[in-house]
Design a binder for these strands. Structure first.
Length: 470
RNA sequence: CUGGCCGUGGCGCAGUUUGGUAGCGCACUGCGUUUGGGACGCAGGGGUCGUGAGUUCAAAUCUCACCGGCCAGACCA
């Protein structure tokens, strides 16, 4: 009997497929105000895992968490010219509060460089106060004209790091350290997404930055997604907020600042990178539920065996969930877990149990195998690591086989219809960049030939990676 | 803001050409049978057809205006 597909095939209608995954895997819904989102418990579980992994790396890099206000005086935004120019079109502004018109409107933060700059100025006096390494987990609001859940919402959750350094070299090195040790490390090793790292062109730079570095990932349909950014802000904000210190010789100096962030956009990236026609696939190191132990039916102590297996897995540090809802059919439950992308499913039923075995099913490639009941807990951690590696390898293969080296702007435009194109920056230049932009193809980043991050955009041999982007 | 498409139970849609007073699938509720890959039977609940005005004996259907959404742009984590 032919059944209607649970998800719309992605080749036909990728946006629709994406919406289906979000809804049917119970990750998120659209909020009541246009462009906002409601994150469901299962989706939030994935976000919590992202937060935990990223936060640990941020602390490893020496930054500390703090919190700054949601509301920012409008006048703060106007202190840095490029910054206000870049953000003013998408600000949500509060003009009324407490039943009356406010003397000065208050903006809902689109990012926090300005408030944090104000406080850095108060907190920094001596060179001994530097570097000041701050981070906050918060929500921000940007009134985008076009929104897509997780990828570009009016309100989103993120982490924003803000640091001040005594020297330009110190700021520059830290921005690069965050890009590599926090963002790339997390994305490659936890999300199993083989991101490119590189430098943004002048055109793509953050409003108020002197240099923007980014992680770029390829989605299942060949389009690019900017997964995270790390900015050198030069002394732009230091000047605007008068952030100065006295150096070891007693003279007044201005600091150099950075800012860097990743957001709930990574949730969208995860879905668009690893999802297939059966739903989401979550890499094991990220998964909030790594293994689901599924009771096929509750005969002859099947449930007891399943509980025991779940407990043993928990004891070896596996994040496990028991599914004993035997009032729902096996097929329905198996499909639900596939939609949610749980990496490993252990099916416990009377037939297998009679042989002293359980069935182990891998979500990422659908393979099934039998494992002796007694050796499940010992075997699973290695299987999860193998899945993690296989998912990264598959995503890397997909990216590489959809990336080509080209020599002309026309070839770049053509190649970007299905994937990434690498073209010498000397050939493309800002003129070529503007030409490609007319066909919605943008320079994702500039790289050195070995894939590393260039120090300036004037270096010889730079390659521009161009693509269509979300 | 520009261009194209679309607004009908929670979701997805048919019905609009040719006006006659709203229907299907999924989901939901109850009972029973099921449960090793998306169950089945029977019985139910739920919609002033985006909003307003107009034409008409009669409007989901025709006319006008407005509002909202989706897709592709410009902007962006």
């Amino acid at each position: 009997m032919a059944k209607a597909p649970i998800l719309t095939p992605q080749a036909d209608d990728f946006p629709r497929w994406y919406q289906d995954v979000l809804a049917k895997a119970e990750l998120a819904d659209n909020g009541p105000v246009r462009g906002t989102m409601v994150i469901r418990p299962y989706g939030y579980g994935l976000w919590e895992r992202m937060v935990a992994e990223v936060d640990a790396r941020i602390k490893e890099a020496g930054a500390e968490n703090a919190y700054f206000p949601l509301f920012i005086p409008e006048s703060y935004l106007t202190r840095e010219a490029q910054h206000v120019e870049g953000f003013s079109p998408e600000l949500a502004v509060v003009t009324h509060a407490g039943g009356k018109v406010l003397d000065e409107p208050v903006v809902v933060r689109p990012t926090s460089e300005t408030v944090i700059g104000e406080f850095m100025a108060k907190w920094i006096n001596s060179h001994r106060d530097l570097p000041l390494l701050l981070n906050q987990w918060a929500n921000v609001v940007r009134w985008e004209l076009r929104t897509r859940i997780f990828l570009r919402t009016s309100e989103f959750l993120w982490q924003e790091g803000h640091t001040a350094h005594a020297t330009e070299a110190g700021a520059s090195a830290y921005a690069l350290q965050i890009l590599h040790d926090v963002y790339r490390d997390f994305m490659v090793n936890v999300l199993a997404m083989p991101v490119l790292v590189g430098r943004k062109t002048r055109q793509e730079r953050f409003a108020g930055a002197t240099n923007t570095l980014a992680c770029e990932a390829m989605m299942g349909d060949g389009k690019a997604l900017q997964m995270g950014t790390s900015h050198e802000l030069g002394q732009n904000f230091a000047k605007a907020f008068d952030i100065t210190y006295q150096d070891a010789h007693g003279s007044k100096q201005m600091v150099w600042t950075t800012s860097w962030g990743v957001s709930t956009r990574m949730m969208g990236g995860l879905i668009l990178c690893h999802g297939d026609d059966a739903g989401l696939r979550v890499p094991p190191r990220l998964a909030s539920i790594q293994v689901v132990v599924l009771v096929i039916r509750d005969d002859d102590g099947v449930k007891d065996a399943a509980v025991r297996i779940a407990d043993e897995l928990k004891a070896v540090g596996v994040r496990v969930r028991l599914d004993d809802r035997t009032d729902t059919s096996f097929g329905r439950r198996a499909t639900d877990w596939e939609l949610k992308g749980v990496p490993l499913r252990i099916e416990v039923g009377p037939r297998d149990l009679a042989n002293g075995e359980v069935t182990v099913v891998q979500r990422h490639d659908g393979t099934k195998s039998q494992t002796a009941v007694g050796s499940v807990a010992a075997a699973v951690p290695a299987v999860l690591e193998a899945i993690q590696a296989a998912m990264l390898a598959a995503a890397t293969e997909h990216r590489d086989s959809n990336t080509v080296d080209v020599a002309t702007v026309a070839e770049a435009r053509e190649a970007a219809q299905t994937g990434f194109a690498r073209i010498p920056w000397a050939v493309l230049g800002e003129a070529g960049e503007a030409e490609l932009a007319r066909d919605a193809v943008t320079v994702r980043c500039l790289q050195l030939p070995d894939g590393s991050v260039p120090v300036s955009e004037d270096e010889p041999d730079l390659l521009a990676v161009v693509a269509r982007a979300y």
